Computed example of a mutant assay.
Amino acid sequence: MNASSYHPTRRRKTGPMWTRASHQPRRKPEWANLSDSQILARLAPGKAEPTQVLELLLRLFNARHTARDKSVSHKTRQERAQFIRRAFGDLHARCGFKQLPDPRNLAQRHVQALVDLWQRERLSPATIQTYLSFLRGLALWIGKPGLIRGPDFYGLAAERYERHGYAEHDRSWSARSVDIDATVERICEFDPHVGAAMRLIRAFGLRRKEAVMLRPHRCMVPFEATALPPAQRAADHYVRIKAGAKGGRERFIPVSTPQRLAALAYARGVAVDQDAHVGHPDANLRQNLRRFHYVLDKFGVTAKALGVTAHGLRHEALIDHYAAITGAAPPVRGGAELPREIERPARAAVAALAGHSRIRVADAYLGRPARGRSVPNRADAP
């Protein structure tokens, strides 16, 4: 099978690549002058069906971020809603509770029963972390912010179940001695659309979805159109990356290296017209992402085969960006401690390239920054 013989699954068209999910309905007009608590109060505890209360909670709160004043992605909304519905069903069907509890009466005995069920099912620590995070959001919705405790409270080993916001291992392709250029070239020969997305991830540090959705003929703008301060000018032209993927924000990346220029030129050669995206033109976003994973699996770009994933190329690009700014390897590659006046701006630049406003996001790619007293500038050191 070659690229020219690929045909997406013949299904009814679902709209453009970024069609909105339908699991977050609009707020009802009759709720316009009511607070969330007033709306919930309409369903009296003990009288309303628990499933009815649950659906109302999802309708009111599922679009909201649990920690910041912003909305979450449609993917997060869908996964959170599916999990919460399933968890309450499990309380009755699999955890021994004779009656389904009103979600507003969620208590530690319910949470412990769910954790015990997940352990019996041998779910991975990462999955249980995610499930506890979803329950923590639900606890906030019902006014019980301290309900969900740490892993050790539920009998889980803290060292396995606590999340770290920093990279403990280098996930780049270089760390696994994968020949990046040769691997990407073979993918390009088999499927130019997937290959173009891989080139963009490598050159610009994009997410998988951002690369597939990029419109290479329309995305490049002159510096004057970016509204960036003149002091930040790094190139005459920039690539505009739209907001939307995994909490990312709109950003402009300078076309400042031959690698970025070549990746963009290749993507333009693949895109069929001025409005085309990088993905296959006859497929929607879901089909293109499925094709993306199929091709990478075919060439062994998996954690099981080569020990790397497509996201590892994003790690590669962000680590390279840090090294280009500082002239040193990051902590995740054993780099030495740097002066704060060098380290912090470099991490801010990596976070911006990744599409985030918080500098701490860079830790997930570079490793934990040095803590403690500042290191003196080497030029001033004795």
Rank of each mutant, 00 (worst) to 15 (best):
G165P: 01
C188I: 04
R120L: 10
A362G: 11
H92T: 13
R218P: 04
L138K: 00
R160N: 14
A167Q: 08
L289I: 00
W18P: 12
E49K: 09
R340Q: 15
S22Q: 12
F292N: 00
E55P: 06
D320Y: 10
V308E: 03
R240C: 02
T9M: 11
C219R: 02
K47C: 11
R368V: 08
H277N: 06
Y238V: 06
D191Q: 14
G195T: 06
L200N: 01
V53F: 03
T257M: 08
E341D: 13
A175M: 09
A87V: 08
V239N: 00
S133H: 12
I84L: 13
S73P: 08
A349L: 10
R202T: 07
E341V: 14
A93N: 07
D170L: 01
V375K: 15
G143W: 14
T9E: 12
F204R: 07
V278W: 06
K298Q: 15
R77N: 15
T226K: 08
A362F: 01
I187K: 02
V194M: 03
D69L: 07
R64W: 13
R94P: 09
D273V: 00
P103D: 00
W18C: 09
F61V: 04
Q129M: 07
L261F: 13
R42V: 02
F292K: 02
W173S: 00
M220K: 08
G367K: 00
G372E: 06
K28S: 07
E250Q: 13
E337R: 14
V255T: 03
H277L: 08
V72R: 00
I180Y: 04
R208C: 09
V115T: 02
L353G: 03
L54G: 00
R358C: 07
A167Y: 09
R208V: 12
L353E: 06
G155V: 04
E168D: 08
L338H: 04
T226A: 08
T183G: 01
A271C: 11
S71A: 13
T226W: 00
R333P: 06
A351R: 03
A44W: 10
P145D: 08
P331K: 07
A87S: 15
L100A: 03
G96H: 09
I148V: 14
Y6T: 02
S5D: 12
L132H: 13
D170V: 05
A158N: 10
A303N: 10
V255A: 06
N288Y: 05
R268E: 04
P229N: 06
D152P: 11
P216L: 00
P254D: 03
S73I: 04
R186V: 01
P376L: 09
N377V: 12
Q99F: 05
K209Y: 04
R340Y: 14
K209S: 13
H237D: 11
R291A: 02
Q82V: 15
L353C: 03
D275I: 08
I253L: 13
Q287L: 10
D179F: 12
A317M: 05
A235L: 05
R373E: 10
G334Q: 11
K13P: 06
E168K: 07
V270C: 03
